[in-house]
C-alpha cells in the first residue's frame, strides 16, 4: 500500500432538508443537531481517516438543496472523485428528484465519479414512504452504491462514507508521489487495467449497510 496520504473530494447532494449537512456532521464530528441552519451555497468539512492501512484526507463538500442555488453549486463539483446523493426515506419527492441530481452530476463532473445513493432518516420508520428495495433497485440501475442511514441515530453513517472511499480507491489509480487523485489516468490498453470498463466502471458490485 501507499505510504502517502490520498486526497479525496466527495460531494453531498440532494434536495433541501434531506439531511445532507447532518450526515456530514455526524461523520466528521459525530454530532447531531436537528436544528442546523440550512446550508447557504456550499460548505465543506475535512476528515482524516485510515482505510486498509491507507491514510486518506477527505474533503467533504456539503451543498444547499434549494432550487435557487442550483446555478451556484455545480461550480464546486469540479475534481470530485465521489458523490453521495441523499434522499429522505420519508419524502417520496426527494427520492424522485435524484434523477435530476444525477444529471447535474453527469454534466458537471468527470464521467467516472463514484456514486453512492443514501436513503437518510430511517429513524422515522413509521413515516417511511420510500421502500428500501426501491432505493436499492434505483442505485443498481445507476451503478451506484446504496445504503440507508440515520444521521440522528447514527446508523450506517460511518459505513457509508467508508464504503464510498473504498470504492473510490478501487476505481482509481493514485499518484504515488503526492497522493493526489488522478481519477482518469487509466488509459485503455496501456496499463495492466485493460479490463477496466469504460464509462466509469462496475459499480454494481457493492452494497453496504444492512
Amino acid at each position: 500500500m501507499l505510504t502517502s496520504t490520498i486526497k479525496l473530494k466527495i460531494l453531498v447532494i440532494g434536495e433541501s432538508g434531506v439531511g445532507k449537512s447532518s450526515l456530514m456532521l455526524r461523520f466528521t464530528d459525530d454530532k447531531f443537531d436537528p436544528n442546523e441552519q440550512p446550508t447557504i451555497g456550499v460548505d465543506f468539512k475535512v476528515k482524516n481517516l485510515e482505510i486498509d492501512g491507507q491514510r486518506i484526507y477527505l474533503q467533504i463538500w456539503d451543498t444547499a438543496g434549494q432550487e435557487r442555488f442550483r446555478t451556484l453549486i455545480p461550480s464546486y463539483y469540479r475534481d470530485a472523485t465521489g458523490a453521495i446523493l441523499v434522499y429522505d426515506v420519508s419524502k417520496m419527492n426527494s427520492f424522485q428528484k435524484l434523477e435530476t441530481w444525477l444529471e447535474e452530476l453527469e454534466i458537471n463532473t468527470n464521467r467516472n465519479i463514484t456514486k453512492m445513493i443514501v436513503g437518510n432518516k430511517i429513524d422515522l420508520q413509521n413515516m417511511r414512504k420510500v421502500d428500501r428495495e426501491l432505493g436499492k433497485k434505483f442505485a443498481k440501475q445507476q451503478r451506484a452504491l446504496f445504503v440507508e442511514t440515520s444521521a440522528a441515530n447514527n446508523i450506517n453513517v460511518q459505513t457509508a462514507f467508508e464504503e464510498l472511499v473504498k470504492k473510490i480507491l478501487e476505481d482509481n489509480i493514485f499518484d504515488d508521489q503526492n497522493g493526489v487523485a488522478k481519477s482518469d489516468i487509466r488509459l485503455t490498453g496501456m496499463s495492466d487495467s485493460q479490463n477496466q470498463q469504460p464509462a466509469g466502471g462496475s459499480c454494481t458490485g457493492g452494497y453496504c449497510g444492512r
Binding site: 464521467r111 482518469d184 489516468i185 487509466r186 488509459l187 485503455t188 490498453g189 469504460p198
Partner: peptide, 13 residues
C-alpha cells in the same frame, strides 16, 4: 474506441 476513450480520458486531465 480505444482512441476515443484515451482522448476522452486525457482531455479531462
Amino acid at each position: 474506441d480505444k482512441l476515443k476513450q484515451n482522448c476522452c480520458t486525457l482531455s479531462r486531465e
